[in-house]
């Protein structure tokens, strides 16, 4: 079937099988390999992207179900060489080791801060409760998201 999905604000049209999973449309068909593909069983959160602003496990959606919706991947965060505050926060607080879980963590963090610009530690922990990190430990990841929240607030005040 012919399918058009808006990814990071750009319509991408391809001929695909209806059984294709969104994660494969993003990585293989659209060539955006920033989104990671981990457990393949809906359990790890590495594949999380945003659909209409809400986190979605892209291994658990058919690409066909996403036509007409806005998908955002990790590639959408940086713009003209400027990192998104959540990316900067991960850098500042050393919130990644191997980086496998990072794209999903970043997208979850972005969605959280869009909805709740000043989350408590507990709210951050709830938001990332479906994201598994095998190496960093969650402490620095929570700190990174707090860092982003604080710096985003500061930037907004400057403007």
């Amino acid at each position: 079937m012919q399918l058009t999905i808006n990814i990071n604000g750009k319509p991408i049209t391809r001929e695909v099988e209806p059984r294709q999973l969104l994660v494969h449309f993003i990585r293989d068909t659209a060539g955006l390999t920033g989104t990671h593909w981990g457990c393949d069983t809906s359990n790890c959160g590495a594949c999380v992207v945003l659909m209409d602003g809400r986190p979605l496990k892209s291994c658990t959606a058919l690409a066909a179900m996403c036509e007409g919706h806005e998908i955002q991947t990790v590639e959408s965060l940086e713009s003209s060489g400027r990192l998104d505050p959540v990316q900067q926060g991960f850098h500042e607080t050393h919130a990644l080791h191997c980086g496998f879980c990072t794209p999903g963590m970043l997208m979850i963090a972005r969605a959280l801060l869009n909805e709740n610009p000043n989350p408590t530690e507990q709210e951050i922990r709830t938001a990332i409760s479906g994201q598994i990190c095998r190496c960093t430990g969650y402490k620095n990841i929570v700190a990174a998201i707090r860092w982003a929240a604080e710096h985003e607030a500061a930037t907004k005040q400057e403007v």
Binding site: P55, S129, G130
Partner: peptide, 9 residues
């Protein structure tokens, strides 16, 4: 029930 992304769907 499940986790936030699953609860979104």
């Amino acid at each position: 029930i499940a986790d936030p992304p699953v609860r979104n769907r």
